[in-house]
């Protein structure tokens, strides 16, 4: 084959044209524009927040693409083409240095996000995300609105739940510690309220609880459990002060349930996707022993002890 300038230039351009036709134009021409069942359009504020998200390169660390294999992340819904029909550009992302955000809307109330943007380690002590406070209050509001819209109508439903329970949680907090603790416990199924921590207090268990507390809890509840962590000024109702809980019948089951399930409407997220059962019991007991000074670990009623537990062999 004789490689003339025309062969090189025109030949390669013709090949490129044919290939663009097949792998770019045909997918575009045969695209499905039908919105998915959760689709809704964005408000002006959400659209403004999206531009801030784009300008600051959030997409490099956060995907918006839930895959069929993402059950490990607690995915409830796999992304569909119809989710993206108004996205220009589409922000699928290529890396998950941080978590996927496709369904982030309504997972937390707005104040959690503001505290997180001021410094991500306030709400997520292990986070390696940079501070975003430089954006200023207005842009943080817009960015928060955008994040809260991710998941579209699914997110809206979650947001409504956050708003509904935020009012209840705020009323309870403002009614004083007695009412607040009563309200918090009331909303837990009786079975959990009657349940003591089934495992004994051990040095190893407290060490595990201490580590989990530092990685997940310290930003809001503070190093001494008084609810004065660095996130506190940004959150309302503020993080719970554990030291007021003594003699208020806080069982291990109550602590477990609140950590597992979170308190929707407040900045307290659910941790069931991130902490296995043992870690929740351990961190609950850590709080009970060190901050409440009132632990029911291994108290009655309990079933047959787990094999590792110290004490009577016939318990």
């Amino acid at each position: 084959m004789k490689m003339t300038p025309a062969a090189v230039i025109i030949g390669s351009l013709l090949l490129l044209a044919a290939i663009v036709l097949v792998v770019v134009y045909v997918p575009w021409a045969t695209r499905h524009d039908a919105p998915s069942e959760i689709f809704r359009s964005r408000s002006d504020l959400e659209a403004e927040g999206r531009l801030i998200y784009i300008a600051n390169g959030c997409v490099y660390c956060h995907s918006q693409s839930i895959r069929t294999i993402d059950w490990g992340h607690g995915a409830e819904r796999i992304a569909q083409a119809g989710d993206y029909v108004s996205d220009q550009p589409i922000l699928l992302g290529s890396q998950r240095t941080g978590p996927d955000l496709s369904q982030e809307g309504g997972e937390h109330p707005d104040d959690w996000h503001i505290a997180h943007f001021i410094n991500p380690r306030y709400t997520r002590p292990n986070s390696i995300m940079p501070e975003v406070a430089f954006l200023g209050e207005d842009k943080l509001q817009a960015l928060t609105a955008y994040i809260q819209s991710l998941g579209m109508t699914d997110a809206d439903q979650r947001m409504q739940r956050q708003i509904y329970w935020k009012k209840a949680a705020t009323d309870a907090y403002e009614a004083g510690p007695d009412e607040n603790v009563k309200w918090l416990s009331e909303n837990i199924p009786q079975g959990w309220r009657d349940l003591p921590n089934p495992y004994p207090t051990t040095d190893a268990g407290l060490a595990r609880g201490h580590l989990i507390y530092q990685q997940f809890c310290i930003g809001c509840h503070g190093p001494v459990g008084d609810g004065m962590g660095p996130a506190q000024p940004w959150l309302y109702p503020p993080p719970l002060n554990f030291t007021i809980l003594k003699n208020r019948e806080i069982s291990g089951g109550i602590l477990y349930y609140q950590i597992m399930n979170g308190i929707t409407g407040t900045a307290m997220p659910y941790f069931k996707r991130e902490l296995e059962s043992e870690k929740i019991w351990d961190v609950g007991n850590y709080v009970a022993v060190y901050f409440i000074d009132d632990s029911d670990a291994n108290a009655e009623p309990h079933g047959i002890d787990a094999a590792y537990e110290p004490g009577d062999v016939n318990r």
Binding site: V20, P27, W28, V85, Q88, I90
Partner: peptide
Amino acid sequence: SLGNVIWKPDTGALTGIPDAILLWF
């Protein structure tokens, strides 16, 4: 020129899934 959707100066993007296909092309 294609990949940067140069004919759309404001966003430089297509819409939805075709944008991802073009971008990675």
